[in-house]
Design a protein around this nucleic acid. Structure first.
Length: 380
DNA sequence: CCCCCCCC
């Protein structure tokens, strides 16, 4: 209580508010923050709310925007939403005490920045009092860290949850820059294809759900894998929607050897209004070599028959074939399953786009494309 | 952590 009164005096608040009212408001603040604020922090915040100019470290009246924070900014106050929480770590100080440190990524409408929390503030991560999606009033000091400018919040800093609504904007990675192993990945992209949801059994006996979407931006496209409850997002998605994927990670798929974006527990996927440019990269037919995925564009130059067959494993399927020609050559397309019906929709000379078909050396050692369930076909 | 590249 003494320290609250000390702040009351130090901030020369007697001309603004009665001491007892100040104490009451501090109490309200503590309750409002759900126990996340101590008395001293709450007192500084109330003082700030009352327009006090110097409430200690970083609590000057100006609220900084993330984009304005530079290495020389000094103490800052910001209001930002937690985008990522990294686990807290302990370390030994030279004086024999155990220090704690934790990192967050927070964002406001101007960008995102890393917060480094020390000791008591880092403990809030350990106790689960800080999680993705919460918005905080933050006061700390700016420092150049390992991965750029960051805000350090120590014992004199402030980290208080607030109800204030903050639009979070995070720098996005271009698809062509995505590398295996990347974390903390944010993308803005256009939905190009949406697959069905599949269920599978885990080794522990539980049932999982998984699905994929293909997304593109002006630098390329990538397969996105959504797990379990994240597959529910599909019901709200349509092809050509613009989406933001926040806090995803990139992993090479053991099966395809391609890097994919993984949408896990902590990843946020949401639609945006922003138009995202994407143009399909069509390969000239004569450049196709076996063992890759390609998109081609051309005119139908041959139409075969539909055939129903039984696979070795007993499942039924259908296949039909068309030929497609462009300026550089002609190729056979095997149309599997639902694509087999395409032969009824096209005539000779119909323009088509065959997107994401897999090339292989087929019948008579000729290169052909397989249009399977990862392939999208557009009839123009 | 899951999956196709199958037919004649």
């Amino acid at each position: 209580m003494d320290e609250i009164i000390e702040i009351y005096k130090k901030q020369k608040l007697s001309g603004i508010i009665k001491q007892e009212d100040f104490l009451e408001r501090v109490g309200e603040k503590v309750n409002q923050m759900g126990g996340l604020c101590d008395n001293r922090t709450a007192a500084m915040l109330v003082a700030h709310d009352l327009g006090a100019g110097d409430t200690g470290e970083g609590t000057g009246s100006e609220v900084h925007k993330v984009a304005d924070i530079a290495p020389g900014t000094g103490n800052v106050r910001l209001i930002a939403r937690v985008m990522t929480v990294f686990p807290a770590k302990e370390f030994n100080r030279n004086d024999g005490t155990i220090g704690r440190v934790a990192n967050l990524i927070v964002a406001d409408e101007t960008g995102s920045i890393r917060l480094t929390l020390w000791d008591d503030k880092a403990d809030l991560v350990k106790t689960g009092d800080i999680s993705v999606g919460q918005t905080f009033q933050i006061s700390g000091y700016v420092k150049e860290g390992y991965s750029g400018v960051e805000v350090n919040v120590g014992n004199n800093g402030v980290l208080c949850e607030t109800d204030e609504k903050v639009e979070a904007s995070v720098a996005s990675t271009k698809i062509s820059d995505i590398k295996n192993g990347m974390g903390d990945l944010n993308l803005r992209a256009r939905v190009l294809d949406i697959a069905d949801i599949r269920t599978f059994n885990r080794k522990d006996g539980s049932t999982g759900r998984v699905t994929n979407i293909t997304v593109g931006d002006d630098t390329g496209k990538i397969r996105v894998t959504l797990w379990d409850e994240k597959t529910d997002l599909l019901s709200g998605l349509r092809i050509n929607d613009s989406i933001e994927i926040i806090n995803a990670y990139a992993r090479e798929n053991n099966f395809s050897q391609q890097v994919e974006v993984q949408v896990g527990n902590r990843t946020i996927v949401k639609k945006t209004d922003k138009e995202i440019a994407y143009s399909e990269n069509f390969t000239p037919i004569s450049d196709i070599i076996p063992g890759e995925s390609y998109s081609i564009k051309g005119s139908v130059s041959g139409i075969g028959e539909r055939r129903d067959f039984t696979r070795d494993d007993g499942t039924e399927n259908s296949v039909s074939n068309i030929y497609v020609s462009d300026d550089t050559g002609r190729i056979r397309i095997a149309l599997w399953g639902e694509h087999a019906g395409l032969i009824d929709e096209v005539d000779i000379d119909t323009e088509v786009e065959i997107i994401d078909a897999f090339s292989k050396s087929g019948f008579n050692d000729e290169i052909e494309l397989s249009a399977g369930n990862r392939t999208r076909i557009v009839v123009l």
